[in-house]
């Protein structure tokens, strides 16, 4: 395994939290390596438009915003490396982040790996993924031009996906387990104003119908248990996010949702390891809060390193 020279801080993940941390670490003149397993930007890139990031009154394309984060991090000296962190192990002067391509020794580590979409957990789900089951409306909406689709979920992402899909689909059914939505009010207003969108209240999906492609859903009413079929050719799953904390589950304290426990300074249960963004407990899953906790984690690293010499 290759070992690269020790850096002051290794940041794992180049989404909003990791890149914000990199900007602050770079400006503090810490040698900074950012590990990213795919492409810089993070999961926000799969949404079509950001209109709640402060300072952009007309909204901004996720790719444009995140390219700005990345350029700013690189400008202040951060080195972005394509590699996936596999584990973090202690060494006499700090930690070693073991990647797929090399080992990355560091005096401090910031974990900003984010979260990924949660699966529904139905038996047919894997087989029909890419055959009508999708987790990315902006990727797959054009395949459903003039067809009926369903979105399952009730949070902001589900509401945004339903409104986005209505531009392509002939009809969008939003399937929600409760009798009210949790998503932001302005998104609810847009959803209810769209004549193509119907909300299927108090309903859960028992089964996805179709052998080689999605042909319909079996819905169960959560009040009376009655069952009915809904003919759709697409199912967009938006039932929440899971933190990608698997690789540190033995090392760090996690909460019951596998989120990394941090204190007010973003410190984890191990000295010198900090965490930020959607992977930490009670994260609101917003670009602005991910950026904010990334900044705070970097400042904590600066303070930690000044004390440890």
């Amino acid at each position: 395994m290759n070992a690269v020279p020790r850096s002051d801080v290794v940041i794992i993940g180049a989404g909003p939290a990791g890149l914000s941390a990199a900007i602050y670490a770079g400006r503090a003149r810490l040698s900074t390596v950012v590990l990213e397993k795919a492409l810089p930007g993070g999961q926000i890139l799969i949404t079509d438009w950001i209109e709640n990031y402060p300072g952009f009154p007309d909204g901004v394309a996720p790719a444009v915003l995140m390219e700005g984060f990345e350029k700013q991090a690189v400008h202040f000296g951060a080195k972005i490396v394509t590699d996936e962190a596999r584990e973090i192990v202690p060494d006499p002067v700090g930690w070693i982040v073991r990647g797929g391509k090399a080992d990355y020794p560091a005096r401090a580590v910031i974990i900003a790996v984010g979260a990924r979409y949660r699966r529904l957990g139905l038996a047919e789900e894997d087989r029909l993924t890419g055959r009508g089951v999708s987790y990315c409306a902006t990727c797959d909406a054009p395949f459903f031009r003039g067809r009926a689709v369903a979105v399952v979920g009730g949070g902001d992402t589900a509401l945004m996906e339903a409104v986005y899909l209505a531009k392509y689909a002939s009809r969008v059914h939003l399937i929600h387990r409760r009798d009210r939505l949790r998503g932001t009010k302005i998104l609810q207003e847009r959803l209810f104003a769209d004549p193509k969108i119907t909300v299927e209240w108090s309903a859960v999906i028992d089964q996805i119908l179709g052998r080689d492609r999605v042909e319909g859903l079996v819905l169960r009413d959560t009040n009376d248990g009655s069952v009915r079929e809904l003919a759709v050719e697409g199912l967009f799953v938006s039932v929440g996010m899971d933190p990608q904390s698997e690789f540190v589950r033995e090392l760090l304290d996690l909460n019951e949702w596998k989120e990394i426990r941090v204190d007010g300074r973003l410190a984890t249960s191990r000295p010198g390891i900090f965490a930020a963004g959607d992977v930490i407990d009670a994260a609101p899953h917003q670009v602005a809060t991910a950026a904010g906790t990334g900044v705070a984690a970097a400042l904590s690293v600066v303070e930690y390193l000044s004390k440890t010499g």
């Binding site: 795919a38 993924t129 890419g130 055959r131 009508g132 089951v133 999708s134 987790y135 990315c136 990727c139 797959d140 395949f143 459903f144 080689d212 492609r213 999605v214 050719e233 697409g234």
Partner: peptide, 23 residues
């Protein structure tokens, strides 16, 4: 039957051998 991208399909000897969906 592709209804989602990214999808990778592997063809060998004119036949579809493997279908890999998603990132």
């Amino acid at each position: 039957g592709i209804r989602g991208i990214p999808t990778l399909l592997l063809f060998k000897g004119g036949e579809l051998k493997e279908s890999i969906v998603g990132a």
